[in-house]
């Protein structure tokens, strides 16, 4: 912690002078489906002066169990995540949804277990979603990337409403050379993914994502970005089914200037 941080008691808002060690919480979807996002996150974190480590025994944040009502398995997974990550300066995830599970829901999960609750609270203070970590903690105001495209941005629910992420990605996207950001109508409305919801209630989920893709098409953008892979896979799957060739990518790929790989779901 810097002297500055100690004095004003807010180490997490002042850009640190030293090199903090950030443990990357890859998230299971990025690990399995879109490793590019993990590499983009590493580049962005290193550019922001961090040393990045990737703890090898990570699997998932436990959300599928948590939202299915399986509290005991969730707790077991949460204890494992905390044990694996609590020693680092920061824990960063390229997802508002998983970030929020670690940050907001773990402490709640152990509400009746004082020892683990305290540990979960201490751990939660280190946890951040990637883009907001760059801007709010590391003080990043611009990125070194170029993309000659018009993009639009969908605000994923947990990031927006549980972690307050709205301006941060837009602020950094505006510094990407050649990029034009056009606002998505009803950007703050759910895309209908909802984890297991989208397979438990496929028809309802489809109606919701259908509204989203209509709005996306109305922007005329070349590319749709968001900060959560679950939403992105859902939206991309629907766009492709509608034969809409708008490219879909995680915002980190664009901010890191790593858009050489095919987009999510390939090209149309």
């Amino acid at each position: 912690m810097t002297l500055n941080g100690m004095i004003d008691g807010a180490p997490s808002t002042a850009p640190a002078q030293t090199t903090p060690t950030v443990a990357l919480f890859v998230t299971c979807l990025v690990d399995l489906f879109r490793p590019s996002v993990g590499f983009a996150a590493i580049k962005l974190l290193e550019d922001a002066g961090c040393k990045v480590v990737v703890p090898a025994s990570q699997t998932c944040c436990g959300q599928p169990a948590y939202n299915s009502g399986d509290r005991e398995d969730t707790k077991a997974i949460a204890r494992h995540v905390i044990e694996t990550f609590e020693a680092y300066d920061y824990v960063v995830a390229p997802s508002g949804s998983c970030g929020s599970t670690l940050k907001k829901h773990y402490p709640e999960l152990f509400a009746n277990d004082p020892a683990w609750h305290e540990r979960a609270v201490r751990f939660s203070q280190k946890v951040h979603e990637l883009v907001s970590f760059l801007t709010d903690v590391r003080g990043v105001t611009e990125v070194d990337a170029a993309l000659p495209a018009t993009v639009t941005y969908h605000d994923s629910c947990s990031g927006l409403r549980e972690l307050g992420i709205r301006e941060q990605p837009r602020q950094l996207l505006r510094t990407v050379e050649g990029l034009t950001l056009t606002e998505l109508p009803e950007a703050d409305v759910c895309c209908g993914f909802g984890g297991t919801f989208c397979v438990k209630y496929p028809d309802v989920s489809n109606a919701i994502v259908g509204k989203k893709t209509k709005h996306i098409a109305s922007t005329g953008a070349d590319m749709l970005l968001a900060g959560d892979l679950g939403c992105l896979m859902n939206i991309d799957g629907k766009l492709k089914r509608e034969n809409n060739g708008i490219e879909v990518r995680h915002v980190a790929e664009v901010l890191a200037g790593m858009t050489d790989k095919p987009p999510i779901g390939g090209k149309l």
Binding site: L32, F33, P35, P202, D236, G237, K238, R241, K261, G265
Partner: peptide, 9 residues
């Protein structure tokens, strides 16, 4: 049923 599934990389 309603969407394509993006393949892993």
């Amino acid at each position: 049923k309603w969407r394509d599934l993006p393949a892993p990389e």
